[in-house]
Design a protein around this nucleic acid. Structure first.
Lengths: 159, 159
DNA sequence: CAACATTGTTAGCCAAGGCTAAACTATTTG
DNA sequence: CAAATAGTTTAGCCTTGGCTAACAATGTTG
């Protein structure tokens, strides 16, 4: 018996409210998540570098390592990748800078992050929790949902 | 200059609303996300196996491969891991079953997933989008936020 | 029941993202 | 200005989660 057997559900009736989505849609969901995973670390680094540049004036590997709770070696390796992707420019032993593409990515990421964070706070989530959740959620929120979150937050603030 | 220089912000005043969180808190955010990543694939597999068992009566590797849009070899390898973790039992060439621990994990996952999905729909997100977002978000939503989401959804349904 | 189709497994490859240890560069300070 | 300290890089290791190709088992069917 395979997944496409149309009678299967007759022999094993659902006790759940939600049935399984069609295979193609289901596959799409997982593929989208896998895809997000490939870019999200990159985005986190770029976003953090952008934040450090904005708030501190420079972005050093040691700061990134501390804030990400990761070894300096890991950061160094990652910076090489970011360089290859032309998201940052770096001279050995010097502060990092974002390329134009990097800046664009940092801004987009930061904006998404803020929308999610503010939305969670508007929902009534405690700040510390909201920050943790936002960090994890931001890469998995579609533009459509992001839009709705933003409107919700604005509504909330009016009242 | 390092991250802990207390004067840095004087020379580079923030143009953003949100300042950088303290290093320890920031590190905690990233660590939590990294941690979630380690378990989320496992949870996705277990959840899907549970759903297949519920809705189809059996869970075959081929079905999992199709629904996850992944090769059968990948599924086979993963099943070995799930076995080692004592989340599933399997005999070669036979359907999979969940151990007690596996069932517990599947239920928890399914419940979280449903709460997030229903919340997104209650927010006004289109079904297809909500499904994709929920798949990605579910592993990054704290219990606190989950609770709030559930209450929100219930509120919404009353009106 | 033999052949074919489907399903599952194994072997071996790859990239990503962690780590530690060691070497090197830059900065600070006695 | 030499030595100590701090920061950065490199080398080399490990695990995870993908993949393809080849092979093995099972199920179906002429």
């Amino acid at each position: 018996m395979t997944d496409s057997n149309p009678n299967a559900s007759l022999t094993a009736p659902s006790i759940h409210g939600d049935a399984l989505p069609p295979v193609e849609q289901h596959a799409q969901q997982y593929a989208t998540v896998r895809n997000a995973h490939e870019t999200e670390l990159i985005e986190d680094y770029v976003e953090l570098i952008g934040d450090l540049l904005t708030h501190r004036g420079e972005a050093r590997a040691a700061d990134i390592a501390n804030r990400m709770a990761v070894s300096q070696a890991t950061v160094s390796k990652m910076i090489r990748r970011l360089n290859e992707l032309e998201l940052v420019t770096s001279k050995p032993y010097r502060s990092l800078f974002l390329t134009e593409a990097g800046q664009k990515m940092a801004e987009t990421s930061r904006a998404r992050h803020d929308i999610v964070l503010h939305f969670l706070r508007a929902l009534g989530v405690k700040d510390a929790t909201a920050r943790i959740d936002a960090e994890g959620m931001e890469h998995h929120v579609s533009d459509e949902t992001l839009d709705i979150m933003q409107r919700f937050t604005e509504q909330q603030q009016k009242s």
